[in-house]
Amino acid sequence: MSGVAPVSGQAERIGGELLRVDNVSLSFGGVKALSEISFDIKKGEIRSIIGPNGAGKSSMLNVVNGFYQAQEGSIHYKGVTYAPMRPYIAASNGIARTFQNIALFRGMSTLDNIMTGRVLKMKASLLEQALYMFRGKSEELEHREHVEKVIDFLEIQAIRRTPVGRLPYGLQKRVELGRALAAEPDLLLLDEPMAGMNVEEKEDMSRFIIDVNEQFGTTIALIEHDMSVVMDLSDRVVVLDYGKKLADGTPDEVRGNQDVIDAYLGVTHD
């Protein structure tokens, strides 16, 4: 497939560089989680990060949205250089994410959880909120309307009022995606969105990821262990192992890379 020219729709979908990670190194005490990682993410593409357990994939996403601050290197996002990125800056510039271990607000309903995704877009003052008047009311209604669109998109209308703590795992993952989508992100970081799901749930989730990408033009950075999902969905794949970058390229290039095969299958070092 590597020789075949990309489909014309594909070429239009993918634009210029949205994010570039430059020589990022991150260590916790003596443990080097990431060393000198560089890669870029283009506008509109689905970019996967794969690697064995402990390779530094989640750390990489955490550096991108500022939860971890890398000791070295920088993040270039939308033409601005951040060294390091901060969580609030990332969130207010359109980076949203989901978590490997679901990080929903368990005591709140599905609706409220997704509404929190829009918190940065709400500007009503304390007084307006206290009285539920003027912007306090109009904003709630306006954002509710948007949140309902997200709920329709993810087909979770029936669980709107259910506290998320009571939902099954697969639906919780979906609500978490909803919360990230509510922020109308430009870059969506998905940390193992399909971990622990059965085939049907994986298919649903894959469909949502493709739809988000195609309908809203959202750029997606995806961490996933299921290779068939990764190879089917991604435009380009970056492979990490022990905090180092092993390979970077289209799914087919990566699949054929000897280092990657060694990392996954194991190899005797002599």
Partner: peptide
């Protein structure tokens, strides 16, 4: 409202709340 949801978000999962903004 918004402020109440922010409070509950901090209560339930402060790290996720911070990353949301």
């Amino acid at each position: 409202g918004r402020i109440g949801r922010s409070w509950m978000a901090i209560r339930d999962m402060d790290i996720a709340a911070e990353l949301i903004g």
